[in-house]
Amino acid sequence: MRKVLPSVAIGALLIAVWWILVVVTRSVIFPTPLQVITGIWELAEDGSLWRDIGASLYRVGAGFLLAVLFAIPLGLWMGWVRGAYATLNPIFQMLRPISPIAWIPIAILWFGVGNVSPIFLIFISSVFPMVVQTTAGVHAIERRYLRAAENFGVSRYTLFKQVVIPAVLPQIIVGMRIGLGVAWLVVVAAEMIALHSGLGYLIIDSRNAGNRYDLVIASMIVIGLIGLMLDRAMRLLEGHKLVRWRYAR
């Protein structure tokens, strides 16, 4: 209770300040907190909120899953095989700083304005942090553990299954958390530009349909809450018994 009290107090204070400013400035366009809440209610009632949440989550889910399937084996390979790292790392380092938003024109050119474009953008945005984290995780495996495995003369399969993968798993989860966070940022941006559904589209559509800023802010709050929930879900993985050793002591 004591832990959450300060943040609840700050939140309440911000809402109060927002409310007072809107009333004092007699803004016609900017909504009060109450208008935003009724906006959320309105969107929920007519079903568009659920439809758009579903569309965004579907795209993030698909793009992120593809990125996981691609990035983790690739990261393990790049971490383990020196030649693979030397060859691919410079390419990844060059591609990584390019904002996923910059890929939007290319995505539309290649995949049109359907679901494939945002899925591609999410893939591009979340694959890099996961590859980098997984590779770094392999490089960070302490030599004493690899030596112990060598000493017991285990097969390559056992070495990977019982030493390399468990040792890297905490880093993989960190990469997944970063990747999912970026994916959620990108889906909103992608939907604002090239699509006709999703929470990003909801923001743009609300503004275009008669400056409904109550719905714009309502969508923003929903985006924030879902982002928070996705991060919490990833954090649950950090508590799994297979990776708990990393956070103990």
């Binding site: 004493r144 112990a148 000493n151 017991f152 097969s155 056992t158 468990p166 990776v243 990393r246």
Partner: peptide, 26 residues
């Protein structure tokens, strides 16, 4: 010939029993 070093190399992600079973893999 098994090496036991100062800092130890018991795998932190395996239980005591799994650590012992690890050596018996082959």
């Amino acid at each position: 010939g098994i090496l036991i070093s100062q800092h130890g190399s018991v795998f932190p992600w395996l239980t005591v029993q799994q650590n012992l079973m690890f050596g018996l893999n082959g």
